[in-house]
Amino acid sequence: MKTIPDQIADIKETLPDLTPTPPGLKVQASSHDLKARLDWGEPGLTIIDVRDFESFNKSRITGAVPMPMDELVERAKSSLEPIRDIYIYGETDEQTAEAANLLRAAGFRRVAELKGGISAWKVIEGPIDGAVEHGNPGPDAYNVFARLEHHAKAQKIHK
């Protein structure tokens, strides 16, 4: 006669697996692949932007960390585990592939190249951060007096 734990195990094997699982990591990932993982709410990944700091500051995938090509391996080794899921993108698919290969050669085993980079991400309306995306406030943005004065003038025009 089987023990109760064995009986339970047998019953579990006959049941369908209804537990949803997040999409897996692909060597070459689309924006949809990354967005599906983020929509799943899975925090176990890192998004790396290998473009220069100026491009990163202008526009980037929300949550991406800057690691320019010349610092990539050193910064990744100092801050990431080699088994971490990494999505990486650059200015072009060629730069992305080069960066991914550098990480793989450095021992990172789970690296996905985000095909189309930030342009493809914008096409699917993925969340974006940066000065270009949210506007550069300009010199009078924090000048309360100037803003009130502008508001008062606008109110007079509309009356």
Rank of each mutant, 00 (worst) to 15 (best):
86 I>L: 12
154 A>H: 07
65 V>I: 15
69 M>Q: 11
128 I>P: 02
83 I>S: 08
149 E>A: 09
86 I>K: 09
89 Y>G: 12
10 D>F: 05
21 T>I: 12
48 I>T: 05
79 S>T: 13
149 E>C: 03
78 S>F: 01
64 A>G: 05
96 T>L: 00
28 Q>R: 03
19 T>Q: 09
138 G>V: 04
133 E>L: 03
156 K>L: 14
99 A>S: 15
145 F>I: 14
22 P>G: 12
50 V>T: 15
9 A>T: 15
78 S>N: 13
84 R>N: 09
79 S>Y: 02
130 G>R: 00
156 K>E: 12
127 P>F: 05
118 I>R: 07
52 D>K: 06
74 E>W: 00
146 A>H: 10
53 F>Y: 01
29 A>R: 01
82 P>V: 00
37 R>K: 10
74 E>Q: 13
145 F>L: 11
138 G>K: 03
54 E>W: 06
132 V>D: 15
94 E>R: 10
14 T>R: 08
83 I>E: 09
151 H>R: 03
95 Q>T: 08
125 E>N: 13
48 I>A: 09
121 W>Y: 02
38 L>N: 05
49 D>L: 15
57 N>Y: 02
142 Y>C: 01
116 G>Y: 07
77 K>F: 03
145 F>A: 08
95 Q>V: 01
14 T>E: 14
157 I>D: 07
107 G>F: 10
32 H>Y: 14
72 L>P: 14
112 A>D: 01
107 G>A: 14
34 L>T: 06
72 L>D: 10
34 L>N: 01
60 R>H: 06
2 K>L: 13
93 D>W: 04
82 P>C: 06
132 V>P: 00
77 K>E: 04
149 E>M: 06
86 I>F: 04
110 R>S: 10
155 Q>I: 15
96 T>P: 05
30 S>V: 02
104 R>M: 13
59 S>M: 12
80 L>M: 07
15 L>A: 14
86 I>W: 08
27 V>W: 00
138 G>I: 05
99 A>I: 14
45 L>P: 00
23 P>C: 08
38 L>M: 14
26 K>H: 08
76 A>M: 04
14 T>P: 00
17 D>H: 12
53 F>P: 10
26 K>P: 00
16 P>E: 06
159 K>M: 15
28 Q>M: 11
120 A>Y: 01
100 A>P: 12
15 L>G: 02
59 S>C: 13
119 S>M: 04
153 K>F: 04
56 F>H: 15
146 A>S: 13
31 S>F: 03
65 V>W: 00
97 A>C: 03
19 T>Y: 12
